[in-house]
Amino acid sequence: MKISVQINASPYQHQAADTAWGFIQAAIAAGHEVYRVFFYHDGVYNAARDSRPPSDERDIVKRWSTLRVEHNVDLVVCVSSAQRRGLLETSVAKKVAGYEHALADGFRIAGLGLLMEAVIDSDRHITFGE
């Protein structure tokens, strides 16, 4: 079964990213395809490249990056949510903020069209949030 996941809450402040992680691992283990994880609202902070948790804490951002590498899951950050919260897309970031990447490896930034595509193509869509 194709499952798409939406994450609406920032990491660390809410359990959403952790619950989603447990769910996604179990879905993959059960042979399902996790088609896309779409980060929306404050959920975009799950992709913050410069997140540096203390070394004895789970690294939520890095954990997502490994999901991309190990299971080729498409990690999409909503562009309008991200812009509003200071995570700029590369071309804009270069121009106005003088840096290249706001997003950690494995994430890509895109519009709501990709959320719609996920909804249309998946058998299930599940949202984790605040």
Binding site: I3, A26, A30, R124, H125, I126, T127
Partner: peptide
């Protein structure tokens, strides 16, 4: 349910409504 049971619930029920 554990996480795999959670996945099974998602598989067997439609739609899913998260109530925040």
């Amino acid at each position: 349910v554990d996480y795999s049971g959670f996945v099974a619930l998602v598989e067997n029920n439609k739609p899913i409504r998260s109530c925040f």
